[in-house]
């Protein structure tokens, strides 16, 4: 078993059009590095020097990782990670807000 990572439309050029890819790692950081080894460029779109990019939302089993541990959030086999651009994903746009 692995960790399923759902990719938003805007990043599917990096995954050959795949809506979801699989990866492994003990933390979100390791998972993203693992994905980047097969989908080069993905890490740069999600992470900058300060951590998760401002307009990217990442959810672990639908829970916002910014309220968990950010890039240090623990992940394990069977989890689902959802990546969304903040503009299309809710946090930025809905009443409820952007942080």
């Amino acid at each position: 078993m692995a960790i399923e990572v759902r990719i938003p439309t805007i990043l599917r050029n990096l995954t050959d059009g795949a809506k979801a890819v699989e990866g492994k790692g003990g933390s979100l950081d390791e998972l993203i590095t693992d994905l980047d080894s097969r989908h080069p460029g993905l890490r740069d779109r999600l992470v900058d020097a300060k951590g998760l990019r401002k307009f990217v939302n990442v959810y672990l089993n639908d829970e916002d990782v910014r309220f968990l541990g950010g890039l240090d959030t623990e992940v394990s086999d069977g989890d689902t990670v959802t990546v969304l651009p903040a503009v299309a994903g809710g946090a930025a746009d809905l009443p409820g807000g952007r942080r």
Binding site: Y59, E63, D64, T82, V87, A91, D93, G96, G97, R98
Partner: peptide, 28 residues
Amino acid sequence: ELVYGLRNIDEGFIPELYDDSVLTTRFS
């Protein structure tokens, strides 16, 4: 995406009541 369609980031809206220090966590 149909609902979000045409908007851009500058149009984001946070209710004035919102204070994220009250929340423990947030699900989407």
